[in-house]
């Protein structure tokens, strides 16, 4: 998998990448964090492509091929629809600033650095400030097929908070959270920080009980 080298900025991602590369079939079946349509597609693809011994009968193969094609079509529709939500002029372009939202809303979880690399792939040679659908579709299809930038599971997220909570108190103070989020990693803008604080910080203790916070956010998302 050629694009894998882009992943080096995130250890968790490169680990998952390893899992995908090493145990492709297994990965295809166990991914419960992947969206249903993605899982279905992947199962079909791994069935017909990665597992040639499954092709017992011609008919079966033909059916699964057909189903794979159907799934791919549905896949494209999904991408198109997400794109169209931001294509305010219905002319198959979106503002370059919306691309991150579109990619992330399709279930991907890239870092800013990775997003930047993706952008470079879909942008025109001379950037216009807009991204064309024809450019976006193949790149995004590939990203989804290769299952890059998988969502971060709840327990991994919890571990990340625990790393920051070196005293193991079960919470971070507001100041600590602000420090980590705006000084480490790919720092939050002021707007992002304020928005996160508004939901995360318990006004009485002025701190974040990250375990509760995660539970709340994960439930909210589903």
């Amino acid at each position: 998998m050629e694009p894998a080298r882009r992943f080096c900025s995130s250890p968790a991602a490169s680990q998952r990448q390893g899992a995908v590369n090493g145990k492709g079939e297994e990965g295809g079946l166990q991914f419960n964090s992947i969206t249903p349509w993605g899982a279905e597609l992947f199962t079909q693809l791994s069935g017909s492509v990665l597992n040639p011994q499954l092709k017992k009968k011609k008919i079966e193969h033909a059916t699964s091929y057909k189903r794979g094609k159907l799934a791919l079509a549905e896949f494209h529709k999904k991408i198109k629809e997400a794109f169209e939500v931001f294509d305010h002029e219905s002319n198959n372009t979106v503002d370059v600033r919306e691309i991150g939202t579109i990619i992330r809303s399709l279930g991907c979880c890239p870092s800013e650095g990775e997003l930047h690399d993706l952008l470079a792939e879909v942008e025109e040679e001379e950037p216009t400030g807009y991204i064309r659908y024809e450019k976006f579709l193949p790149v995004m299809t590939k990203v989804l097929l290769e299952r890059r930038y998988r969502p971060i599971p709840e327990d991994v997220l919890l571990r990340a908070f625990e790393v920051l909570d070196s005293a193991k108190r079960g919470f971070l103070t507001k100041e600590e959270l602000i420090k980590y989020m705006t000084e480490e990693g790919e720092p939050f803008s002021q707007e992002e920080m304020e928005e996160m604080l508004s939901a995360a910080i318990d006004p009485d203790s002025n701190s974040i009980n990250y375990k509760e916070y995660i539970t709340m956010m994960v439930i909210d998302e589903n």
Partner: peptide, 28 residues
């Protein structure tokens, strides 16, 4: 989001790097 995939993830960074990477994960 499920939680069963955690077996494949572990955090074995150096201390300084740890915070950086944890932060980036939360931000992502």
């Amino acid at each position: 989001m499920g939680s069963s995939t955690s077996i494949h993830h572990h955090f074995a960074f150096q201390n300084a790097e740890k915070a950086f990477k944890a932060a980036i994960l939360i931000q992502r």
